[in-house]
Design a binder for these strands. Structure first.
Length: 913
DNA sequence: ACCCTGCATGTGCAA
DNA sequence: TGCACATGCAGGGTC
């Protein structure tokens, strides 16, 4: 094949990043594929110093953006895309943008003007070879020159600016004004050039950098600069598409090799980007900054390979990067939305200290049905087929996946035939989903540990998880619902903090976009500036917490659709968030965080602090009225309190109820108690922090039946031979229950027999023993009902009797047919109301002064220690019900002594006893 | 009555 | 236009 200009082949390339210095011949592994191109190939990236995947994520967002309208990446013209009618009015760019017809036409008139792909940053790559011609520059007018390295079939493309590009696995083919890949059948490899004329006025300008200026500046194509970049999404999109790409396009399509060269996004190293950020601070709009900030997130995703030098790794371990799919069957077809966006921190977390390598496979934003109670997680077909073991039968096979905590989950990986295709699902995910507290909009990430091939899953909480009905979303989108919801008991989360504290998750954003797409023909966003947005980055529950009743206000409790509202005559006070705790002496404290130094300070209980508060405002404690004063709580105490405070908030959310401040007290207390149980409070020993997303007293790693038993249906079952307290107790109760059931059954049979006899002898005179038998049973029934009534009454008096047996009532109902007049049922509200009373009430009622003293030997200085720790976790109401049903008499007495604080605790406490 | 299971269907996206 | 996927639904099983 003739080389244009007779240029010698490229023999090697070197990354210009001095910290990287990667040298490769193109086949030595220093290069790898980047983002997929429309044509099926992949961009080519330097593997060592790392180039920006985030660019693609960025573009991907815009790909996912409103499907109807997109902006031309060159002129900014708004194009209607997607429908058949518009098919010829635009052209898709491999880089993710679109190009309008005008620009397509104009582009042919321009000479090839490209932005050097790699030169804006220090990571940029330069080619060097035997021939200095490569470096000295070889200009071409219409089409890039192609240089082929005969050894590795890499092709360097030198553009007008003397910046070469490389294409792997191609042959120099025809030149044309359009740079586009052309697929060549039957093994022929050819490339077709698509005009990459870029309006650098849009795109390249922000990327004028030191390194770039040091090189030959690219030519710019002017465009209208008068557009306000904040309103012109073109800018943002263009920013991401500023450079001509060097791309590697190898599609595994039989024997066919495909190669691509296309327009590409600018590649920036983080360091350079930061430098640029300084340089461009004055010229970029906030919107642009926002976009640029994404470039800061770029780092080389070293996928599934051993540790290599990565200059950004240590600097930005938390950066969320869309990693290209790992090797797998058909991975090329993997949609970018499934690319795992996993940070090194998370990878580190998964891999622990081991030397194993984590290969991120894919991720998925949980849909409502994924996170629902059905327990089925729909897997993207391509991902399932690429990374999970192949299955031929619909029944599939069991699959064990380990979570980040090392816990193994057993799922059934299977598929359903669907429209001549397959729909892959993971069944039995409910326990896992619940354990990880995942909900729709959150993201689960699947990875593989090498060596070994073990599957691991991580998760990412959505920053903008929304499960509101569309109407509410719409209202929120219009800003109309905000205040309304703040004053309501909406139990939906609008903002669950990212576990890793990262920025909003793209997938979740897409989820949001998707959810709100049907609201109307136009997308709406509640207009707020960035500070407002920061202020509003809280959940509805948090917002509720910020609203405190006026100090003089006395609430009236009203029930609206089974939700309990505190109704005040006076408007609520907008307060700063604080945490309530109870000391061993029973005294309550309020803790509040200084806005300046972030230290937590103790405040009197009755103080309601305005939205901003600093140590200097602390007039109640002269010792802590300065930010320099040490914090009263030790870091461990603080950590425990905060963790459990978060836990409490989550539980509030899961109950879907607005719980009053007293409940917060109890929960905070519970938090401290939990911490105390694990030796975190009052014991400055080495006990590790017991983090759990489950019941506060659940021990990490606990596999007792209540911890792992799914609410129903399939799923991992507890080892029947387990001898843990809970299991033993449950078994004992089950035995008792069965005995009772047997007894009732025999009674019933006896009654049936009696009825028959009574019917046969109905003409018998009254007083007959036989005819009175059912009445005798009625007496029994009444007696039982009295007992039940007593229990309900007892409950309403404030004693939760978890022995209350709903099944017993059912039995009687079944036995006697028509329901009878009954007292108000023991509703969940009632239970919660009682359960939420603070522990000090309980202690008073039970004549206790300090549980801490009794139980923990007074080891806690600031916390009240709860009853003995038991293995448990926050359970669904279903589980609670089950546990309640299975109580036996000996546990009842314990319940009344112990289980008055929280409903779910009672079960565990009794179990432990 | 509730749950599980398997399948069907509608919608949106990508080719 | 076809495919992927979210979700609805019906039927059977279990509590």
């Amino acid at each position: 094949m003739a080389m244009p200009g007779g240029v010698a082949p490229v023999v090697a390339m070197r990354c210009t990043n001095p910290a990287c210095g990667a040298t490769a011949t193109g086949g030595g592994g220093d290069w790898r594929k980047g983002w997929p191109l429309r044509s099926g190939g992949f961009a080519l990236l330097c593997d060592k110093c790392g180039l920006a995947y985030e660019q693609f994520v960025f573009c991907d967002i815009f790909h996912q953006k409103e499907s109807g309208w997109r902006d031309c990446s060159f002129c900014g013209k708004r194009l209607h895309c997607g429908c058949v009618a518009s098919k010829n009015s635009y052209d898709l760019l491999d880089s993710g943008g679109v190009q309008c017809v005008s620009c397509m036409k104009n582009s042919t008139a321009h000479s090839v003007t490209v932005v050097p792909k790699l030169f804006p940053c220090q990571n940029n790559l330069r080619f060097f070879g035997k021939s200095d011609e490569l470096l000295s520059g070889r200009k071409f007018e219409q089409s890039p020159s192609l240089m082929l390295d005969p050894r590795n079939e890499d092709i360097a493309i030198v553009n007008k600016s003397n910046h070469p590009f490389m294409v792997k696995g191609i042959e120099a083919g025809q030149s044309s004004s359009i740079l586009r890949q052309k697929e060549i059948e039957n093994g022929a490899r050819q490339i077709k050039w698509e005009q990459p004329t870029l309006s650098i006025g849009d795109m390249g300008r922000p990327f004028l950098t030191r390194s770039q200026s040091a090189l030959e500046p690219p030519q710019y194509t002017r465009r209208d600069d008068n557009k306000d970049p904040t309103t012109d999404s073109t800018t943002s999109e263009s920013i991401s598409e500023a450079c001509l790409s060097m791309s590697l396009g190898i599609a595994h399509n039989g024997n066919r090799m495909e190669a691509t060269s296309t327009v590409e996004r600018p590649i920036l190293s983080p360091t350079t980007a930061i430098a640029e950020g300084r340089e461009l601070t004055t010229t970029l709009s906030p919107f642009q900054h926002a976009q640029r900030a994404r470039h800061f997130l770029t780092r080389p995703p070293r996928v599934g390979e051993g540790a290599v030098f990565d200059p950004t790794k240590d600097i930005f371990p938390h950066l969320r990067v869309a990693r290209p799919p790992a090797e797998g069957r058909g991975r090329n077809q993997l949609l970018p939305r499934y690319w795992p966006r996993i940070t090194d921190q998370e990878l580190q977390q998964i891999s622990g200290d081991s030397n194993s390598t984590i290969v991120p496979l894919f991720e998925k934003v949980l849909s409502a049905s994924d996170a629902g109670r059905i327990g089925r997680l729909v897997l993207p077909k391509a991902c399932a087929e690429a990374y999970f073991p192949p299955i031929s039968q619909p029944e599939g096979r069991p699959l064990t996946i380990q979570d980040a905590r090392g816990k193994e989950w057993h799922f059934q990986f299977r598929f359903w035939p669907n429209n001549n295709s397959r729909m892959y699902v993971l069944e039995g995910v409910t326990p896992c989903i619940q354990s990880l507290q995942l909900q729709a909009g959150d993201t689960v990430t699947f990875s593989r540990i090498e060596p070994g091939g073990k599957l691991v899953m991580g998760f990412r909480k959505a920053t903008n998880t929304v499960s509101l009905p569309d109407s509410q979303i719409s209202a929120i989108a219009n800003g109309s619902l905000l205040s309304e919801t703040l004053f309501s008991t909406a139990n939906e989360n609008l903002g669950v903090a990212d576990k890793f504290g990262s920025r909003p998750d793209e997938g979740s954003l897409q989820f949001l976009q998707k959810r709100s797409r049907n609201i109307g023909s136009k997308s709406r966003r509640f207009l707020m500036d960035s500070e407002d947005a920061m202020e509003l980055k809280l959940t509805w529950e948090e917002a509720q917490e910020l609203l405190r009743p006026a100090p003089t206000a006395k609430p009236t409790i009203v029930m609206i659709e089974d939700y309990e509202f505190e109704e005040y005559d006076e408007p609520p006070v907008f307060a700063k968030r604080s945490i309530f705790t109870i000391r061993a002496t029973g005294e309550q404290d309020q803790w509040i965080q200084c806005d300046d130094c972030s230290k937590w300070r103790r405040l009197p209980l009755t103080i309601i602090v305005a939205s901003k508060w600093t140590c200097t405002d602390n007039s109640w404690d002269p010792k802590s009225c300065s930010c320099s004063a040490p914090e009263e709580l030790t870091p461990k105490e603080l950590q425990s309190v905060l963790q459990q405070y978060e836990e409490m908030r989550r539980r509030k959310g899961s109950y879907g109820l607005k719980l009053n401040v007293a409940e917060m007290d109890a929960s905070s207390l519970d938090a401290l108690a939990t911490a105390a149980v694990f030796g975190d409070v009052g014991n400055q020993g080495t006990a590790s922090v017991a983090t759990t997303t489950k019941h506060p007293r659940h021990r990490p790693g606990c596999t007792c039946i209540v911890c792992i038993q799914p609410p129903s249906g399939k799923g991992p079952k507890h080892n029947p031979a387990c001898t843990c307290n809970v299991c033993m107790t449950v078994r004992r109760r089950f035995k008792t229950l069965m005995m009772r059931k047997k007894q009732r059954q025999s009674e019933r049979e006896e009654a049936e027999a009696s009825k028959k006899i009574a019917w046969v002898n109905r003409d018998e005179p009254e007083g007959s023993n036989l005819s009175r038998s059912p009445q005798t049973l009625d007496t029994t029934r009444d007696s039982s009902d009295v007992t039940m009534l007593d229990k309900v009454a007892d409950m309403n008096k404030g004693h939760i009797d978890l022995n209350f047996h709903p099944a017993a009532r059912d039995d009687h109902q079944g036995q006697h047919g028509a329901p009878q007049a009954r007292p108000p049922p023991a509703s969940m509200m009632g239970l919660l109301e009682v359960a939420n009373r603070p522990l000090d009430n309980y202690m008073k009622q039970n004549g206790l002064t300090s549980l801490a003293g009794e139980q923990a030997g007074g080891s806690s200085s600031t916390a009240t220690v709860p009853p003995a720790p038991v293995e448990s976790e926050e359970r669904t109401s279903n589980e609670v019900r089950v546990a309640s049903v299975e109580r036996e008499p000996e546990a009842m007495a314990v319940d009344e002594a112990v289980g008055d604080n929280q409903q779910d605790k009672g079960v565990d406490d009794a179990a432990a006893t």
